[in-house]
Design a protein around this nucleic acid. Structure first.
Lengths: 236, 236
DNA sequence: CGTGGCTTTGAATTGACTCAATAGGGGTGG
DNA sequence: CCACCCCTATTGAGTCAATTCAAAGCCACG
């Protein structure tokens, strides 16, 4: 499906990079873009292949996966709605990008998209700022992967996911119990944190037993003691 | 010392971001820049402090260090001559930047530098491309930190340092013995790889005993068997 | 030629992994 | 509506890679 009139139905119209464009500019970009739905587990870019597209993520969650030749895997990034997807100015993709939930994208062919970038300094500047932020995030995660213990990793991950969920649907009582769904399986959490499934499971059970969180089903988490969680994530 | 005429004595004039500017543009930037020397161990930016400068690195090697509140440290990036230093568009620095060798910088106040960026699309595009590359590097390193064994980490590190040294002073016989100096101490290598000093030392000794490398003094390394080194760095 | 920092080597410990088996839970079809 | 099945998660026991703790050794430099 080609975009309706002028992205008026776009759920992330203002948060995505396109937010920097006025109506006239949007028309040009709009002509390039195509909606695409992907189902959970489907990949849109493969490491080592020519990366011919860029996109805005409209809904769902994607993972960036790095892997060794013998099959070990590491999730090196997660993408959420309004995030930019893909690598301009780079032919061969370094990481495989796969949907961890059903997702919807607004896809652009890479080369024309690069031309739009060059013609629109505001948009390029926004992309630079996002890229700088992604770089800071990746470097912060390097500290976690290399130097934090399994309890710290899991507590920090739960805290971060709660913060993200909380920023979407803000609660009246900050610090009070917050409930949300993890978008990832235990195995995917393990792939983010550089642990194994078993270790993630054990640490979550430990937090539950300690009364810090409640687990309902396999996805839902309730934060019972945010201060304790923070204390386990960042020991003094 | 203010720049002499027009950066004519700059060792990295063509490789650094400034390479994108013509002589007229360079005059404007030149007026902002100041040379600064730092000695080994000296920091130019501190995590948590306001980050008021950007710079080009002219000579020497810098490290970006992330640390936990209880003192664990991780080197999340190394900067070499012609690399860009600092975080435009971001007030508070996330990482401490420290010289690992004596170094020389061309320093710009951040705010005016940002204005130059906005006025010069070519330079902003170059910075975007460098930032995207740094992001790819950081993500690749996440795989190493989280999923590779100590032997793989150390072999890969030695290979990468050899490649960097080799790219500067190219040898006639590719694959033949290459000798170079590590710019880092064992402790700093450990901080890059997420290991301890002792483990790095043991792995280097193992590579020496296996006849893959020769160690002369504490800094010099000779690659005796590049194929074996590659094999240990990236097991099938 | 001494001194201090860096490096190497050894022994013991441990946190996370591996292997293995059980339990839960959501969806499908009878 | 219920039984079954598959996939995911939990729990346990034993192992091992890397760390921690400790002691020399080496080298560069004053």
């Amino acid at each position: 499906m080609i975009h309706q009139d002028i992205c008026s139905d776009c759920a992330v119209r203002d948060q995505a990079l396109c937010g920097s464009l006025d109506d006239r500019e949007l028309i040009a970009l709009n002509r390039l873009g195509q909606r695409r739905r992907v189902v959970r587990g489907e990949s849109i870019i493969w490491a080592g292949e020519e990366s011919v597209i860029c996109a805005n993520l409209l809904s769902g969650v994607l993972k960036l996966v790095a892997s060794t030749s013998d099959g070990r895997e590491q999730i090196v990034g997660l993408l959420y709605p309004a995030d930019f997807v893909g690598q301009p100015y780079e032919g061969e993709a370094d990481f495989t990008i796969t949907a961890v939930t059903d997702a919807e994208l607004c896809v652009f062919p890479r080369a024309p998209f690069e031309r739009v970038l060059e013609d629109h300094g505001r948009m390029e500047k926004l992309l630079l700022q996002r890229t700088l932020q992604a770089l800071r995030d990746a470097r912060a995660q390097m500290l976690t992967l290399a130097r934090k213990s399994a309890p710290e990793k899991v507590a920090g991950f739960v805290r971060d996911m709660a913060a993200r969920a909380g920023s979407n649907s803000c609660r009246a009582t900050p610090g009070g119990p917050v409930t949300f769904d993890l978008p990832l399986t235990r195995g995917q959490i393990a792939d983010v944190l550089g642990l194994t499934i078993e270790t993630v499971s054990r640490q979550l059970t430990r937090l539950k037993t300690a009364g810090v969180i409640r687990l309902s089903g396999t996805r839902a988490v309730t934060i019972l003691d945010a201060a304790a969680l923070e204390g386990q994530a960042e020991p003094a």
